[in-house]
Simulated scan of single mutants.
Amino acid sequence: MTFISVAQTQTETPAVISSHPFWPSIDPEKVRDAQRIDGTVTDSRLVHAVVSAMASVNADLKPFRQEQQAAGINTLADVEAETINEESVLVFSYRRAVYATAHANLIERYRNFDSTAEGNKQADQQDLTADDLYRDARFAIRDILGVTHITVELI
């Protein structure tokens, strides 16, 4: 059995990240907690991943946002939707998409730390996790858009 110490590199809590006023702000510490991202990921690297994820998710949802705003709706929380624990499921799905995309991005970037056979084996396992996270993000985006998760085409 091997014990691996996880470095604690955090110095201060990073600020909440806002984007277009339609979308909810994202707290990097909540991303870290929800996605179980340990201290080997620095705060600045986490913030970078979250900003990148927000830009990607916002781009995917831009037509949706524009449609809602044209209908006079100013924020995602104002879009009519079911609520769970007093939160719109659309807001939850947006956070899920951003969290998963940011985490997948971090996993892909950390692949280059260990080039041994064991490191490559672990990296291959992480690729599956990154793919799973990207899938989760796609599902969350599709939930916001109100479309199914599966696309089938008959030949």
Rank of each mutant, 00 (worst) to 15 (best):
D78R: 09
N58D: 15
T75F: 07
N74F: 09
F113Y: 12
T101K: 01
P63S: 08
Q69A: 05
L90K: 01
A100R: 00
H103F: 10
P63R: 09
D143S: 10
A100T: 01
A123R: 11
A137Y: 03
V98S: 00
V57I: 15
D78L: 10
L106E: 00
G72T: 07
D131Y: 03
D136P: 05
A71G: 07
R109P: 04
A70T: 10
E80R: 13
R95D: 04
T116F: 02
S115D: 09
A71N: 14
R109D: 09
E87R: 15
L133F: 13
F113V: 10
V57N: 02
Y99K: 02
L90N: 00
E80L: 13
M54I: 11
V89P: 03
R65F: 03
K121G: 07
Q126T: 04
Q122A: 14
T83N: 08
A53P: 03
F92H: 12
E108R: 07
R109E: 14
V57A: 03
Q126R: 11
A70K: 04
R96G: 01
D60S: 15
S93E: 04
N85D: 15
S88E: 09
E86P: 02
Y94C: 06
D143H: 11
S56P: 01
S88L: 08
V57F: 06
A140S: 12
E82F: 15
Q69M: 12
I107C: 00
Q68A: 13
F139H: 10
R138T: 11
A97I: 03
R138F: 05
V79W: 05
G119K: 01
Q68L: 07
I141K: 06
V98H: 05
I84N: 08
Q66A: 10
H103A: 09
Q126G: 02
L76K: 03
S56H: 10
D136M: 03
Q126D: 11
K62I: 13
E67W: 04
E87V: 15
R111T: 07
N58A: 14
V89A: 03
A81Y: 04
D136R: 04
I141C: 07
G72I: 00
Q122C: 00
V91F: 04
L128F: 07
D131C: 07
R142C: 09
A123T: 13
R138I: 09
G72K: 01
D132N: 15
V91N: 05
R111S: 06
Y134N: 10
A140E: 00
A100Q: 04
E80V: 14
P63C: 09
G119I: 02
Q69V: 05
R65H: 01
I141A: 00
D143I: 06
A137M: 03
I84C: 08
E86G: 08
V79G: 05
A59R: 14
R65W: 03
D124E: 11
R96W: 05
A137D: 02
P63D: 09
N105P: 06
A97M: 11
E80F: 11
Q68G: 00
A117N: 12
E80C: 06
N112M: 08
N58E: 15
V89Q: 10
L61N: 01
R142A: 10
F139Q: 06
A140Q: 06
L133E: 12
A81M: 07
E82G: 11
